[in-house]
Amino acid sequence: MTILVIAEHDQQSLKAATLNTVTAARKIGGDIHILVAGSACNAAAEQAATLQGVSLVKVADAAHYQSQTAENLTALIIAHAAGYSHILAPATTFGKNVMPRIAALLDVGQISEITGVESADTFVRPIYAGNALATVKSADSIKVITVRTTAFDAVDAGNTAKIESISPAADTAQSTLTHRELTKSERPELGAAKIIVSGGRGLGSGENYHTLLEPLADKLGAALGASRAAVDAGFVPNDYQVGQTGKIVAPQLYLAVGISGAIQHLAGMKESKVIVAINKDPDAPIFQVADYGLVGDLFEIVPQLVNALG
């Protein structure tokens, strides 16, 4: 059994989600190869070679992998899929975009967002926004899988796997990236943060969101998140959204400020180790999942909390 993990990276380094995906591959068991497809992506490939459990890093370096389009990555992966029993990628917007394309061309089903590995062909995955867990068995010869990163620890470094260059596939030229606007932040990435401060509609405005929550996030070294309501209201950009259709997070500490706790939001954060809720409505559903609830006016409580953290 040989497993191919598709690396998500920014050419210089691997995204943290790739490290969780390798851990899922190790749970399945077998030889693990990583594919790094990019443009001038040597640094990312070298990092991939340090991951425990990886025996081979395959690098496809070509200008048309710079923008990581699904069409070009699929053509490459299909050309190199022979001999693999499993193909894995993180269930991020990157993996979700590419993997079903690969599965369809291999004529196999995809197993999306696995949270557990029962055996080489049987996996656990959440359905209905995490309100139920399905254990599914695949009858396909190649298992194409996306991995919910919060369900698996990051793999350690310290390995020195072989790096091998593979030939790129032809440019499909079906899709051109014309603009990319990544939110710049000094804060930790939402998906990898140990502490997340998240704000909801209760904050009232984008200005309040920033003036109240940023000092708190600074004190805690936290990432900033938001509920769908706060994103829809335009307080913060879409990539802040935590929930069923946004990011799924599981930090050590999740502070929900002015978030009522809609099912969609809970689906994205209820695996957090400790949840704190600050809300003026004592009956808000968020309190049903919070370890520590504080009922009151967030406009008074949050500044007090910043002071108390000294």
């Binding site: 197993i111 359905i127 254990t135 309190f287 370890d291």
Partner: peptide, 20 residues
């Protein structure tokens, strides 16, 4: 179908903690 669902279960419940 390519996938067979062997079972469907409830996720572990998170119980409400305390109010401070």
């Amino acid at each position: 179908p390519r996938l067979t669902t062997l079972k469907v279960s409830e996720p572990p419940k998170r119980s409400a903690g305390i109010k401070v």
